[in-house]
């Protein structure tokens, strides 16, 4: 335990010393078998899957609305939105509350893994993919040790209809 505390203290010291470095923090999560990440500053908070109230005549990826400490927030299943097959059994399914000022959006993910500190040098530009589908919501790709992590811009991923629903619910 003391070793851990020592390690934490050392890390804090290094953070303070390397603050000048151009690093950015991301929250890594899983959708299906793949890992994705969003900027940490876009996250308001992370909660377990709450009880949602479905709203009729909404797209299938909208689960409904929830009550977060008196504030009504729309909840969307990001896996359905991005056409990703969800993990079969995940006990760590969580909801990431995004701060899409002026509204908040809850996104259901398979699991929230960890907080990443990524230097800009480690971020690659998104690949040019031939076809008519524009992949505007991919900011870049972070090359980890053995796998690739896609850095998402959730706001760009949402449609106008989604935003209208958000506005209505807000």
């Amino acid at each position: 335990m003391s070793d851990d505390i020592t390690a934490v203290n050392n890390s804090i010291q290094q953070e303070h010393e390397g603050a000048h470095l151009s690093e950015e923090r991301f929250l890594e999560f899983s959708l299906g078998e793949e890992n994705y990440a969003i900027p940490l500053l876009k996250v308001k908070e992370v909660i377990a899957v709450p009880k949602t109230t479905p709203i009729p005549n909404t797209p299938a990826h909208f689960n409904g609305i929830m009550n977060l400490r008196g504030q009504v927030i729309s909840v969307m299943d990001l896996r359905k939105k991005l056409n990703i097959k969800p993990q079969e059994q995940s006990e760590e399914t969580a909801v990431i509350i995004l701060d899409l000022s002026p509204v908040f959006l809850g996104c259901v993910v398979d699991s929230v893994n960890k907080v990443l500190s990524i230097a800009k040098s480690q971020i690659s530009e998104p690949p040019e993919i031939e076809g008519h589908l524009k992949i505007k919501y991919i900011d870049g790709v972070y090359r980890a040790e053995s796998k690739m992590i896609v850095l998402l811009d959730i706001a760009k991923a949402l449609d106008i209809a989604d935003l209208e629903i958000l506005k209505k619910s807000a």
Partner: peptide, 8 residues
């Protein structure tokens, strides 16, 4: 989740 929120 708490640790993530703390990080946020």
């Amino acid at each position: 989740l708490l640790s993530f929120n703390a990080s946020v």
